[in-house]
Amino acid sequence: MSVVVGVTAGVATALRRRSPADRLGAAVAYLGYGVPNFYLATFLLILVGTQFGWDATGFRNELLTPKNAKRYVLPTVVLATTLTASQLRYTRSLSTDLLGRDFVRLARAKGAPVSRVARHVVRNAAVPLLTLTFADLLGVLMLNVFVLEFVFGIPGIGTVSLAAIRDRDVPLVLGATALFVLVGVVGNFLQDLAYAALDPRVEE
């Protein structure tokens, strides 16, 4: 969700620099970075729960129940906020740099439509964007899993880790930490594999 929205908005704002859409995209990105996820999660929980009567907490182990599926909406939105902001800012900056390259000027000189220019820009920006996506995704997941599970009452690894720290359960703390490390190692390995698929020159 964050990749689709962030990359699309970033390229769109780069193609329309100094326009109202560009200023709006910058404002949304800074707002997404500036608002702490704890406050955003609490605000959405109070707003939805109070105004619309939507029970967004109290997850159960039956993950496929309709109630649990509905309760995943707010945590997903909160988690995607920071990632979308980073994707938007970085994509806009990278796309602005690429729009001044010779291959873009040549495409525009041949009369290529905006959609084709945007496709060329995204293809050339794929590898740097992939680096940011993996780095931000892993970092945000590792930090926000504690916030989201605490606010929304999700029985996950963050809840278990906080309980282990509170109870001074050293073996469980070490086990949870090892799991986070494993996720980081696997994520970087998948990132390297994706490099080779997106850019054959990486294998050289």
Rank of each mutant, 00 (worst) to 15 (best):
V4T: 11
V4W: 15
V4L: 14
T13M: 13
T13P: 02
R18S: 14
P20T: 00
P20S: 01
D22C: 09
A27L: 14
V28D: 00
G32I: 02
Y33Q: 14
G34Y: 00
P36R: 12
P36V: 06
N37E: 15
Y39F: 15
A41R: 06
T42D: 00
F43Y: 12
I46S: 11
L47A: 13
F52P: 06
G53F: 03
T57E: 02
T57R: 11
G58Y: 10
F59C: 01
L64N: 07
V73T: 13
V73H: 06
L74P: 10
V77R: 01
V77C: 01
L79I: 05
L79G: 11
A80N: 11
A80C: 10
A85S: 03
S86V: 13
Q87C: 03
L88W: 13
R92K: 14
L94W: 00
S95L: 04
S95K: 03
D97A: 13
F103R: 13
V104C: 09
L106Y: 09
A107H: 07
R108S: 07
R108H: 05
K110C: 03
G111E: 07
A112C: 13
A112F: 09
V114Y: 01
R116C: 00
V122N: 07
N124I: 01
V127R: 11
P128D: 07
L130K: 09
T133S: 08
L137F: 13
V145Y: 00
F146N: 04
F152L: 08
I154F: 14
I157C: 00
T159N: 04
S161M: 14
A164C: 05
D167H: 04
T177D: 06
V183T: 09
G184T: 01
V185I: 15
D192R: 14
A194C: 11
L198T: 03
L198M: 08
R201W: 02
V202R: 10
V202P: 03
E203D: 15
E204P: 04
